[in-house]
Design a protein around this nucleic acid. Structure first.
Lengths: 332, 332
DNA sequence: TTATATTATGAAAACGTTAAACCATTCAGA
DNA sequence: TCTGAATGGTTTAACGTTTTCATAATATAA
């Protein structure tokens, strides 16, 4: 099981390993005949350089880590493609880790990534204080926070204006002359969800509507949770006439529940949802939604990371906030 | 930018690097006081072993490659989680690559993965002949093909019975007394899609229904394509009364188009779709669908790969075919 | 006590690269 | 013809680990 090394190539071409290395790197200091010969034996031996050996001498691996909560959440695949397509251009690869919002898992992954000496990290942090990131910082491994930010270490970041998105979503419902507006969504402790909740209450406030605690269902996790939340809120004595769905999973639960309750959208209930994914247009009626530039969030954070890794760009950390837009369809 | 190495730990603990290495691995004998001291300085120096250096001496990286077509296809995230959750238990990490069905990209990724000396590969091949896999085979790097198979090298594989799934889907429509049944889907050259097409025609055949070429729309790629296909097929002089959607993207296109045409499902048109994803239940009406055990496909292929990497299990290649099931809802 | 086995440790080589320093040709120019 | 510069190559050390082998110290048995 002996593997083919640069020395084998050297021996077979009757030159030194250095010369082979030069040929591989296209370095000028090698004569055409020798280059030819070396390339030939590389091909004939089917030699491929060992990146791990390279990594230890070059002190760079060309690998980045991508730590997110769960690729199954439809937000992430597009984000990932934005990142991947960007870093691939500079020949970086990506190790993917799913934390499931679990800080213990997160720390374990971060340790592994550190040991693998990744050149950079893109992370959707599980919380606002990720102590292990200090270790990355101390070793000058660039970090980009995406979708959420962290406060115990300064990093570049790319987020979306969740607050404003939720604000205009809620306002849209108000302008359609709704007063009794529910919100259904996940855990407020998650940065993005918290911001969306703020946007919702702020919009009600701005328009002089007092928030009704019964209309606030922020604690779901699964589609079934959201379905149940919807069932509950629309079974109230005075049910809402509209609902703001704070995430894509809640949108699914809401549609399922309303279908079951035979409520017609938008006749009986109006909906605006956060996240404009491909399938929301197939719903009946198609969803009016807040659209995030998901791919661009990914691409931008990857660009930021590349800049740092290649020591280009400004030295101050960049904190970028991209904006959302309202896509009007027929659910309100 | 000097990094902390095992030698620094050694020096600071007044022992040799060997001893530090032994402490870290905890297997061989080292006296309690020394162990204590070493662990202490590891902590105080915040030392983390360099996995790349380890990789070159151990000849294993604890990394696998996952090469698939596009993580944005909702089939893949679940597959990925099945794989990840399985390999994580054995402390493997995963490099993810999206080929976009492009063999050139695929070959480039495979070369990179080879150079990184991954311990194993899980791949959804773009086609039936991936010559670069020969190189993996020659180096005894285990390969598992998933969802599709390859014919120029023998590998383990995990696929789903697409043929049978499509067969029972079509049969379901026939049994609901439909005779004019369309199929809308992607490129038949893709293994899974080809199988589904076979299942469709075979079901018609079995029940003595002659296939109508006008009802066959197999060439779409985007949701817009499928939407257009649907529009076209239902604008025929004698339109079909039912449609089999051969993939999840086509399901979206079909629902959008039928909504636009104001066709009622299932009154005007019945549908059965391939792939039972979370959002199909939120459609109106909820989709009757062929369900694949996606997570399990991933978990199984990862198990197969682990077996090979750890040199356990049988030496003959395993070719596993998992079965699909029909989830009946209200679209037919 | 001495001989032997056991335990704890270290030195050095190896893994597969790259880079710095060096050496031997060849070529230009006077 | 000689000098100096290119040119094309090699030798050696370094990167951060693990592993093999040797050795010193200690424990056990006779």
């Amino acid at each position: 099981m002996k593997s083919i090394t640069i020395k084998d190539v050297a021996k077979n071409s009757k030159v030194s390993a250095t010369t082979v290395s030069r040929v591989i790197h296209g370095n000028s200091k090698v004569s055409p005949k020798v280059r030819e010969k070396v390339l030939e034996t590389i091909k004939s031996l089917n030699y491929f350089p060992n990146e791990n050996a390279r990594a230890i001498v070059n002190k760079r691996t060309n690998v980045i880590g991508l730590v997110l909560t769960d690729i199954s959440n439809p937000f992430y695949p597009t984000l990932l493609r934005g990142i991947e397509n960007t870093i691939n251009k500079s020949n970086f690869s990506m190790i993917l880790c799913n934390t499931d919002e679990n800080p213990t898992k997160e720390e374990r992954f971060l340790r592994i990534l550190l040991e693998k000496r990744i050149d950079g990290l893109i992370i959707v942090p599980t919380g606002p204080d990720i102590s292990f990131l200090k270790t990355f910082e101390a070793r000058n491994i660039p970090i980009v926070c995406v979708d959420r930010v962290v406060r115990n270490v300064e990093t570049d970041s790319v987020v979306v204006d969740n607050f404003h998105g939720a604000f205009i979503a809620t306002e849209k419902l108000i302008q359609s002359s709704h007063q009794r507006i529910a919100i259904i969504g996940g855990n407020k402790n998650i940065f993005t969800i918290g911001e969306r909740f703020r946007g919702y209450t702020e919009a009600l406030d701005t328009h002089g509507i007092v928030t009704n605690q019964d209309y606030i269902k922020m604690g779901g996790f699964t589609i079934e949770d959201y379905e149940q939340d919807t069932l509950n809120v629309f079974s109230l004595a005075t049910p809402p006439t509209a609902v703001f769905s704070a995430g894509n999973l809640s949108t699914i639960g809401i549609y399922i529940a309303l279908n079951k309750m035979k409520k017609k959208i938008p006749r009986d209930v109006s909906i605006v949802g956060f996240d404009d994914l491909v399938w929301v247009e197939a719903l009946t009626p198609p969803l009016t939604a807040i659209s995030q530039p998901i791919y661009q969030i990914g691409a931008t954070s990857a660009q930021l990371l590349l800049q740092r890794m290649l020591h280009e760009g400004p030295s101050e950390k960049q904190n970028i906030m991209l904006s959302t837009s309202l896509v009007i369809r027929e659910s309100c």
